[in-house]
Design a protein around this nucleic acid. Structure first.
Lengths: 232, 232
DNA sequence: TCCTACATTATGTCCTACAAAAGGAATTAT
DNA sequence: ATAATTCCTTTTGTAGGACATAATGTAGGA
């Protein structure tokens, strides 16, 4: 395993656009702009950097994609608050990712699921529990593929939402397709996956009567087939 | 809380560059290219899309930044495997993020830390334990600020590494600066933070003799001051 | 057969020009 | 005097052309 690659950068031949991008990023930091502040115009930046407006625009286009800046005609550019997950979303396509990364993400989802309990018990409300019971009630007799996945998403999605942590919720939801993708692949290779001993219904029951440790144990049992998969 | 914003897109006035970017992305998916495949040349894309080469280049520049494509002169462009965390890294600057997002990330790190135990017990080796003991041994009598943070990173970083999950490790390491930033802010506002009852040394001891549930309980105790902070 | 020099070609960079949108100023109407 | 309207100005968005640069493949020579 070449850990070296993480410590020392491969020294790629950077283009002007790359340089300008990092210069701009550095400039924004150094000047400690706050969101809403106006930035210099494209031509001024180009002159200051000694490059063509074209190069500056390519760099700005990147920052714009990341949501770091907003541009409006005539007014110029404004520093904005980037959507940290927006950029992830663009790249999180199972077909584009390498095998190792897919495996990593599969595990990452499990980790996130196991760490859920504490936030959950900090914030859960009776209304949330009711909503969960409602979701569970609709699961009966629908173990077929499309429904199973749908309910899986509905149930776990509700759990994420109950944490009140928007970033966490969106992150987990983004990870789900990758998770399902890996799962499908594994099932095709190694045969059908078992279902955990603890069902969604059981988890809701624990939420009502047990504490966060009980819930975590329950979740572990619920996810047991997936953890077993990791051992192989 | 306006959940609507997550369900329906705000319909932003998109430029040609935005459109071309999504068209290209869609094109790559539909053609199911695999990494290493050659893409059409810039001019061909421009002609096919009916836009200037300039616009195409701005869009390509974005994909290039995300690591989705590699470009080499004369050979043209090749589809590459994006580095999913690379894009996150660019945006994860505490100064750029909103208050809510910062809080979310603070919690997210705690969640990830609490979910660590299972992976850890799946993969830990005696060498790892030895390395951890080594790190703990150097902590003595260094409770001052710069050293504390340094050891915090060394110890927890080693734990991440022990999971054998590169993505998880990098992700956590990226989150740390944000975590420290929020911590500093909180301390300034609400006074000094306590230290958990369970120390790094205790955690190592648990790793040697206890099971994953013991470790998780230990970690919870170790992080207790942070969890208490969430309640307020 | 191997090395070298050259021609080819796609990207990287620059330049100029103009369309479009949006803010601001000046003008007019109420 | 205030409000609405029109025109002007400015800055981004898009287009198209030109050339530098580097890497590839090819032809020629030792």
């Amino acid at each position: 395993m070449s850990d070296l690659k993480n410590d020392i950068r491969p020294l790629e031949p950077s283009t002007m656009t790359d340089l300008v991008e990092s210069r701009l990023r550095e400039y924004l930091k150094r000047k400690s702009f706050v969101p809403g502040d106006a930035l210099p115009k494209e031509q001024e930046l180009a002159d200051a950097l000694g490059v063509s407006r074209n190069v500056v625009r390519e760099a700005l286009s990147r920052l714009r994609m990341l949501g770091m800046i907003d541009t409006r005609k005539k007014r110029g550019m404004l520093l904005a608050q980037p959507d940290i997950l927006g950029s992830l979303e663009r790249v999180l396509d199972p077909l584009l990712l390498g095998k190792n990364t897919l495996k990593d993400i599969f595990e990452l989802r499990l980790v996130l699921e196991m760490g859920l309990a504490d936030l959950l018990y900090l914030r859960k409300t009776p209304e949330d529990i009711a909503a969960l019971e409602n979701i569970v009630a609709q699961e009966v007799n629908k173990q077929q593929k499309p429904f199973r996945v749908e309910h899986e998403i509905a149930f776990h999605g509700k759990l994420y939402q109950m944490t009140g942590n928007d970033t966490y919720m969106r992150f987990q939801k983004m990870l789900l397709p990758v998770f399902e993708y890996v799962l499908d692949y594994e099932i095709q290779a190694n045969g059908q996956a078992d279902v955990g001993e603890v069902t969604h219904r059981d988890l809701v029951e624990i939420l009502k009567t047990g504490d966060s440790e009980d819930f975590r144990r329950g979740m572990k049992a619920h996810l047991k087939p997936h953890f077993d998969r990791l051992k192989a």
